[in-house]
Amino acid sequence: MEVTRTPVGATPADAAADLKIRQYDAQRMLRGDMSDEELEEYVRSRVLTTTLDQALTWARSNAIFPATFGLACCAIEMITLVGSRLDIARIGSEAMRASPRQADLLILSGRVSIKMAPIIRRIYDQMLEPKWTIAMGACSSSMGVFNNYAIVPADKFLPVDVHVPGCPPRPEAVMYGVLKLRDQIQQKPDLGWRARYDAGSTIEVLGTEGVPNGGGSITTTRTHVGPGRPAPAPTPEIAPGLVLPPTATPSA
């Protein structure tokens, strides 16, 4: 199949002439033949200036890698996002990362039980900065239809950036949530909740010997501190009232 490209509103002859003019201008600029006004106009029309911060957030916001982390019903709809109909690759978020260390975004897709909450918090802590969270569905935002002894809303133990309502939300709604998050990252990268939740940095707990009641447990803490943020004191208890279960094997 033959593909012909014609610039809009111009004949091929015009386009060729335009190219000639641009080539001639570039030659003059390089030779130093342009006057000051001409040079200023030339640079203004060709160069985009921005701050490094903005360029960085632009890049970050368009390549958010979600963690492969499914909880319940919403996880099914989350998987639908990578399917051919929605295709989240269009906004650069199709690369689901199995390791939290490679992920930027944690989508809490479903109900969070009290038993699961410390593990989710641990996964969140293992993610590297910058990181974001989407609470997907009614359960992880407000305990939803259940609202009983077993469920914890995500806000209780985790800073949440975007809440997507629904039971479960349509995949389109999650897509919209990711887009909202993108806008949020571009406009206001620092939202203030980090200070509120003491979530300014990544605390990684290493080498936990799983001995009940702390008998001779060895704890090594490595702290990654973001730019301009004070190093928080290593807190043994991650969230009030929630404690991490000991791991089955000591992790390296």
């Binding site: 109900r111 039980s113 077993a150």
Partner: peptide, 11 residues
Amino acid sequence: IGYLHTGIEKT
């Protein structure tokens, strides 16, 4: 098991 216990039967 039990990481997704939701207490549905009780509710």
